[in-house]
Design a protein around this nucleic acid. Sequence first.
DNA 1: CGTTGAGTTGAGCCGTCTCAATCCCGGTGG
DNA 2: CCACCGGGATTGAGACGGCTCAACTCAACG
Lengths: 230, 230
Amino acid sequence: MLATSPQTSARLPVSPALFGQMRAETLPALRPQVAPQNRMNFTDGQEIFAEGDDAAHVYEIVSGAVRTSKLLSDGRRQIDAFHLAGDIFGIELGAEHRFSADALGDVTLIVRRRVSFTARAGEDPAAARDLLTSTMRMLERAQDHLVLLGRKTAMEKVGSFLLSLMERSNGGDHLELPMSRLDIADHLGLTIETVSRTLMELQRKQAIEFAPCSRAIIVKNKGMLRRMAE
Amino acid sequence: MLATSPQTSARLPVSPALFGQMRAETLPALRPQVAPQNRMNFTDGQEIFAEGDDAAHVYEIVSGAVRTSKLLSDGRRQIDAFHLAGDIFGIELGAEHRFSADALGDVTLIVRRRVSFTARAGEDPAAARDLLTSTMRMLERAQDHLVLLGRKTAMEKVGSFLLSLMERSNGGDHLELPMSRLDIADHLGLTIETVSRTLMELQRKQAIEFAPCSRAIIVKNKGMLRRMAE
DNA sequence: CGTTGAGTTGAGCCGTCTCAATCCCGGTGG
DNA sequence: CCACCGGGATTGAGACGGCTCAACTCAACG
């Protein structure tokens, strides 16, 4: 690999799956061309599918976390969402995936064929309603995120992010962050440095505290966090 | 009215409906508590519903344009979408509207009761699929907009915006903008001044040209616009 | 004509980015 | 057990894109 370029900021060189395996397009055998309703495991950074891939499957997270992201031509990246246990992702209107999806740490997924998935929704009204509900939920999240990206300051972005992560993961005040600072930055429309500085600032203000592993955070003052989040 | 404050930027004083009528909550009679499948007309700036209102109806645009937006407590505004003829808006998962919606110029809407709307989707699979498709389409738009807000420069934002508006309105190279510069700014996460400067820059580069009314634009060089949009 | 509101333009500022150095920690090999 | 290494995270200094504030233009309207 030629690239000795930074790779630290939002400006990734090109390949979205540098850390993981080689790109799966080149290895169709690794693709989930498996029986319906099957489980699959992925490890940190591994690509689940790429932008432009045939959207033949739908995924549900059993355990672990997944990021879905889009790249601009020059490597700038936007992570549209982090998906946690119970979430469904990879549903598409068109034939292709409009995002790439990669594992954050170890992930176990249920993989379903898209055709059987949508067929069931076509027959069973309850399944159809579930699908609609899940889609609407994603839409609501995306809409809230629009406000964050368009109108909030760095401090408000990071604060809102931590709070929303607390809501979704049920670990009380203990927050296990499955993603790197770079991932957080690319989700919040910031740089890795600004994310780091802002978290440090929150620690200095006693709103949070770092657990020894530094990927984990303890929320000391949720009220203050909420005040800083907007 | 006491407020002499600027009101020009993203920092609106408080009321989301300054230009329009008084807030409709105070005038329930103006609310579309009308027979199902009814038409309603609105004029420029008029509020169709507000954030937090009971989400009892669903709206379809017959003609005109509508903006849906959210406000932060200090008045910063994010317009999540502009809706054009044929679009449906106001569908909610919960009991309340999560956005406010206002008319951009004269608008004619079809108003449907939410209950009859969702009931039909529960019975008729084709209606259910239409509803899902429409929701997914909104989700796709929102996701593309996340990339724009999180990772694009002012020039790229304005360029992308003009191009996407061209796709949706079918006026060829002639673009009739139904919204003000402030609306564009609050949609793109910019200020009114930056939007103005960027449009002027595009004109200087011969990519666009202003029609006499200045709310209308003629795209002279779509290729250049596309290049500037990313 | 004065007023009003939308849009444009200019000058200076500030929040975030960029670039670069350093720290920290877990893993590896001696 | 320790030295070394590499990648993620932190920290600092300076640059810059877009924001703020303010003046000005212009068209619509009474």
